[in-house]
Write a protein that binds this DNA or RNA. Structure first.
Length: 314
RNA sequence: GGGGGAAUUCCAGAGCGGUCAAAUGGGGCAGACUGUAAAUCUGUUGCCUACGGCUUCGAUGGUUCGAAUCCAUCUUCCCCCA
């Protein structure tokens, strides 16, 4: 039987971090962050990474462990987070996977591994060159020959995935569709209990996000971005894809006013939250806790406690 | 006070007599997602008893077989001269 873990999920600004800490304290657990941006060092304000006060002494893992200049990926995350989770289990504690990066969470929980090939790899570079010179047409035709299942499924505009599908084939001689098919059948590595946080009302979510962004600015987001840049971060870094950072980069470069940047960050954040909700809808069995006008953590804690107890944890 | 310009579907903004429920972008909504995932990609977006029908393009009234597109008046806004 797969070991049990608890996942605290939900879109941005719903309070996953706080609930995670409350529960970890109660259930003798440790937190493993599942966040593609909190992974990078020096990005605490803009990613709302938990501060030492907020962790309340609960050990947190996979936060600020990467250099912002590095290119992390779901695969690398899963590879590094898995032993961390296992170690927590070995010590008889309960892992709380807390975060909003859907793919990373799935990769960790299901533990399927990814097919070979990576960003920056030789084959990928080669494919990029071919794409630049010949467009997607020839590549899509090639995919149609070697992996018709993927070619059929992928939209012609979905360059990224078309290249990746070809990459897997060229690297391994096997198709990504067969790889996916096989890994889908594998039993998950962990038996996850999902607790989801969300707002009942979209407007309320929006207000919460706006508030959060305003607070980030007050706490010095601009300065944080400036410091990050001073460390000689390459412009194309994955870490700079983070919402808040890419917009404030524009402010520092004088391409946009802080006021506009703030509005942009709020907008992109709520669009992101929507995508997170879409992702989460495909996970069956999430125990949702709906926030009303206020986030009543006392109540959420109580509900979660009951859920976890019913699951035999605690 | 005089002269000129503009009013379009949630927003910006095309359209300049029929092929217009109205390009395009944004936003909204929905979806996808197996090595960049806070990324990337897709669909949809007036109403309906829906392969057809109905009501829209500041307002009213005209011209015309036919108008968002032409004319008149009115309303609002912008610019210029006073």
């Amino acid at each position: 039987m797969a070991p049990k873990v608890v996942c605290v999920v939900g879109p941005t600004a719903t309070g996953k971090t706080k609930l995670g800490v409350l529960l970890a304290k109660e259930f003798h657990g440790e937190v493993v962050s599942v966040d593609s941006m909190q992974i990078y060092r020096g990005m605490t304000i803009g990613t709302a990474a938990p501060t030492p006060e907020e962790t309340e002494g609960v050990p947190h893992h996979m936060i600020a462990v990467a250099d912002p200049a590095e290119q992390w990926s779901a695969a690398r995350y899963a590879a590094e987070a898995t032993p961390v989770v296992d170690d927590i289990l070995r010590r008889g504690k309960l892992p709380f996977l807390v975060g909003g990066t859907g793919l990373w969470l799935d990769a960790l929980v299901r533990g399927h591994g990814f097919a070979p090939g990576r960003t920056g790899g030789k084959v990928r570079e080669e494919l990029m060159r071919e794409f630049d010179s010949g467009g997607i047409g020839p590549l899509l035709r090639e995919l149609g020959r070697v992996d018709p299942v993927s070619a059929e499924k992928l939209h012609p505009a979905d360059t990224k995935r078309i290249l990746r599908a070809l990459e897997v084939y060229r690297e391994t001689g096997k198709t990504i569709s067969s790889h996916d098919e096989e890994t889908r059948k594998l039993p998950p590595r962990y038996d996850a209990v999902y607790i989801g946080l969300r707002f009942r009302d979209r407007e309320e979510m929006r207000r919460r996000i706006d508030l959060r962004v305003d607070r980030m600015v007050e706490q010095g987001l601009l300065e944080e971005v400036r410091t990050l840049l001073r460390s000689g971060l390459p412009r194309g870094s994955t870490s700079l894809q983070a919402i808040g950072y890419k917009e404030f980069l524009g402010v520092l470069e004088g391409n946009c006013t802080e006021r506009d940047a703030v509005a942009e960050v709020k907008l992109r954040s709520r669009q992101y939250a929507k995508r997170q909700l879409t992702w989460l809808r495909h996970i069956p069995g999430i125990h949702w806790i709906d926030w009303g006008e206020t986030r009543d953590f006392g109540r959420a804690f109580q509900i979660s406690t009951e859920i976890l107890s019913a699951e035999g944890l605690g």
